[in-house]
Simulated assay, not measured.
Amino acid sequence: MQINSQKGQTEEAYQRASRSGWSRQYIFRTMMDGALLLLPLAIILFALYLIFRFVFNLLVPISVLLSTGSEDPHWTVNILSLVVLLIFLFLIGLLVRNRSGKFYFHYLERNYLSQIPLYSTVRDTVQQFSGLKKMPFSQVVLIDPFKTGVLMTGFVTEEISKDMYTVFVPTAPNPTNGNIYHVPRQCIQFLDVGSDQAMRTVVSMGTGSSCLFNDDALLQLSDKASAEN
Rank of each mutant, 00 (worst) to 15 (best):
K147R: 14
T148H: 06
S20N: 11
N214E: 11
T30Q: 07
I44A: 01
W22V: 12
M152H: 13
S81R: 04
G34T: 07
R123S: 04
L151Y: 15
V84D: 02
L85S: 10
T125K: 08
R110C: 04
D192A: 06
L82P: 11
L50W: 08
Y165M: 13
M1T: 00
G69M: 14
C187K: 14
R185F: 05
Y49F: 13
S23Y: 01
I116R: 02
T121S: 10
T176H: 01
K134E: 10
N98A: 00
L95H: 04
G21R: 01
I3G: 06
Y104P: 03
L41W: 08
T148R: 07
L89Q: 02
F213C: 10
L58F: 14
P61L: 01
T171W: 03
L86V: 06
G154I: 11
A47N: 09
S18A: 13
I62H: 02
S5D: 08
Y26I: 06
L39R: 02
T171K: 10
K147H: 10
H106T: 10
F103G: 06
A225S: 09
A17E: 01
D216R: 09
A47M: 14
E228L: 06
D72Q: 08
S18H: 11
V140T: 12
T153A: 07
S67G: 08
E71C: 03
Q197R: 15
D196G: 12
L66D: 04
D163W: 07
P73A: 08
K147V: 11
G194M: 15
Y112D: 00
R185L: 00
T207F: 14
S20V: 08
N57R: 05
M164G: 00
V202E: 06
T153H: 09
R123W: 01
I27A: 09
D215I: 07
K134Y: 05
M205T: 15
N229H: 03
A217W: 09
M31H: 15
T76W: 15
Q15R: 05
F105M: 06
D163L: 00
N214D: 15
P175N: 14
S5P: 00
S67W: 10
F90H: 07
K102W: 02
I188A: 02
S120M: 12
L36I: 06
W75R: 05
F155N: 06
E11R: 02
A225K: 14
E11W: 06
N229Q: 12
T68M: 12
R99D: 02
M152R: 07
L218E: 13
I79N: 08
N111D: 10
L59G: 00
S161H: 05
N4H: 14
T125S: 13
T10L: 15
L50Q: 03
Y165D: 02
L191H: 04
I116K: 00
S81I: 02
P40S: 01
T153R: 15
H74C: 00
Y26T: 14
Y181K: 04
T121L: 05
A225T: 11
D223R: 15
S130P: 02
Q197F: 03
S23C: 09
Q115N: 14
E12N: 14
L39V: 04
L94D: 11
S204A: 13
V84T: 12
K102G: 08
Q139V: 07
G131V: 05
G21A: 07
G93F: 08
D223V: 12
L41G: 05
A17Y: 05
V141A: 09
F88W: 03
R123Q: 00
T30S: 13
Y181R: 08
Y112L: 08
F137K: 11
D72M: 11
A13D: 06
H106V: 05
R185K: 03
